[in-house]
């Protein structure tokens, strides 16, 4: 799982570098992000700018991350999804559960 981490003030921006966010990466991604939360990160943005598709395993990892973050008064914003991924979130109604923004600029205004 290739990710890039960047700190923007108190916000951690995690950019997924892989094109396929799938079964072979979901568990490792979840652990990487949960480690960041354990280390004290509470304001997270995950960018899908490089991702072509997301499967249910990866969606499950995102759900697990959000479930871990919310009781800690943390916030997670998902950004830069392509049309297919955005459509998946709308169809599954996960767009009602997650905060989804088009751009990094609009995501930053959520905090």
């Amino acid at each position: 799982m290739n990710i890039n981490k960047q700190k923007i003030k108190e916000i951690l921006l995690i950019t997924i570098e892989d094109a396929e966010a799938n079964l072979s990466k979901s568990e490792q991604f979840k652990e990487l992000v949960l480690q960041e939360i354990s280390a004290g990160e509470r304001k997270l943005i995950i960018s899908f700018a490089n991702v072509e598709y997301v499967d249910s395993s990866f969606l499950g990892a995102l759900v697990a991350i959000l479930k871990s973050l919310l009781p800690l008064n943390g916030k997670l914003v998902l950004v830069e999804m392509n049309n297919d991924i955005e459509n998946l979130f709308q169809l599954t109604r996960l767009d009602k559960i997650f905060v989804v923004k088009d751009t990094l600029e609009t995501a930053l205004t959520e905090f």
């Binding site: 499950g60 959000l66 599954t92």
Partner: peptide, 11 residues
């Protein structure tokens, strides 16, 4: 559904 009842495996 809500986040509490959202499954982590829902293919």
């Amino acid at each position: 559904f809500d986040i509490e009842h959202m499954p982590e495996h829902f293919g």
